[in-house]
Computed example of a mutant assay.
Amino acid sequence: MPRRSLERRPRTAVAVTVLLFAWLYLPILAVTLFSFNDKKSLSAFSGFSLRWYHDLAHDQALLESLVASLQIATLATLGSLVLGTMLALGLERVRSRRGRVIGAVTLLPLVTPEIVTGVAALLLFTGIGLKLSLTTVVLAEITFSIAYVTVIVRGRLAGLSTEVEEAARDLGCTPWQALRLVTLPALVPALLGAGLLVFALVFDDFVLAFFTTGVDPQPLPVRVYSSIRFGVSPAINAIGTLMLLVSALLIVAALVLLRLFGRGTSSLELITGGERR
């Protein structure tokens, strides 16, 4: 009886896992399938066609929103990388109680509901008289994304030995040169992974964009939501499929980079490379 019980448990776990993945991904697969539907129907599939992708390519409003989302994601990624790296370096250097408190506060955006962050950003921008536009969306996304960059970069810094930077200082490097020639090159894998992850999160983020965007041009998720309110077109399925594909590729690339380059470069190579430069 115990053996049979143990043999049944994996089957039950497999069944539950299959049901869970079906519940999560069947709707996404349906959206992808109907984006290739030949007819304007969201319930009956009649045949494969690229009709709705062709309509998407000639929809000026959606294309403008796509460009706006790409700009927002790019600027938010660059801004969060700079600020998040600076914050991670500072927190890693400060080993006091104050540093631990600041580090804990840094993690708050990761556990705070995004709608709370969106409402807070809206109140802040309207309170200081800043007109809602793509600029306010970028500022809100940077604020939300800094925590992700800080966590990833701090994880990389924790695996680096401080002796490497000290050795560079002993070889004649100034603190800035040691940071630029030794520490930052070692952080490149983490920065690439964090940048790709933040870009994917910001590109398809709806909540913050909805609360902080202006009238026009709207980010793509907000434009899609506005279009759905007035009737669902299969072109929405096409743009949803493309957004899903881009986000999935970026997240996979981020995970692969963190796995492949997480081992980092040897300390001797870093110092030698710094001297050659």
Score class of each variant (00 low, 15 high):
L249E: 08
P175F: 09
G127P: 05
V246C: 07
D59H: 11
L249R: 06
P175M: 08
E92Q: 10
F21P: 02
P221H: 03
D59Y: 09
Q177T: 09
A235R: 07
T112E: 02
P113D: 04
A15K: 06
K39E: 15
K40Q: 13
T265W: 09
V232M: 11
P185E: 04
S266G: 10
A158G: 12
G273T: 06
I72V: 13
A158Y: 03
A13H: 13
T241Q: 05
S233T: 12
A120Q: 05
L29C: 12
T74W: 10
E269N: 11
R11S: 09
L160T: 01
G195I: 01
A76T: 05
A209I: 02
L132K: 05
Q218R: 10
L132W: 08
F261Q: 09
E275T: 12
H58M: 11
L244M: 15
A121V: 05
S161H: 08
R9A: 14
I72W: 02
V182E: 00
G240I: 07
R93Y: 03
K40N: 15
T85W: 00
S233D: 11
T77W: 05
R169S: 08
A178Q: 02
R4Q: 12
G127N: 09
T150R: 00
L250H: 03
L181C: 07
V198P: 00
P217M: 04
V232N: 05
F230V: 13
G159T: 06
T136S: 03
A61S: 13
A15I: 11
L160V: 08
S69N: 07
T143N: 04
V256N: 07
T212Y: 01
P113H: 07
P2N: 15
L66D: 01
G195Y: 01
M86S: 06
A248M: 13
T241G: 06
A254H: 01
G264Y: 03
S161G: 07
L124K: 06
R169V: 09
L160R: 03
G264R: 02
E165G: 05
